[in-house]
Design a protein around this nucleic acid. Structure first.
Length: 110
DNA sequence: AACGTGACAAGGC
DNA sequence: AGCCTTGCCACGT
């Protein structure tokens, strides 16, 4: 099997592990992938996702709890709808990272 | 092989 | 609250 075809493969794997109904920031994914501080790389990897992948890209939002697309665009609405369908709640266009973020969730597990 | 770019983030005004 | 700057680095030209 082909080993690594780029770091984005590793990033995609991490994103796949985000449970349904939770979200992670780009920086969270970078850190969990072992690439701390490389949040821009995460954005790049998701931008280059193949069309029919099973990667839950919608669960990655920015550190402010907001979707990183301009509001009012089709992509923005798509992502928001997918998340709401999973039970993620938006208040004033933002998600409460303490409630829905993976990092606090991981801590509560331990 | 240099250069611009990006679905980011944090800090300064 | 916004806008600007800087750090970050793999990829396609």
């Amino acid at each position: 099997m082909p080993k690594e075809q780029g770091r984005y493969q590793l990033i995609w794997q991490t994103v796949k592990q985000i449970p349904k109904g939770r979200v992670a920031s780009y920086a969270d994914i970078a850190a969990l992938t072992g690439l701390p501080g490389q949040q821009r790389l995460v954005g790049y990897a998701l931008h280059n996702l193949p069309r029919n992948s099973d990667v839950p890209w919608q669960r990655v939002i920015n550190a402010q709890g907001k979707i990183s697309f301009p509001p009012r665009t089709a992509r923005y609405r798509k992502q928001k709808a997918l998340l709401e369908k999973e039970g993620v709640v938006f208040e004033k266009g933002k998600v409460d990272m303490e409630k829905f973020g993976v990092m606090p969730w991981l801590e509560r597990m331990s």
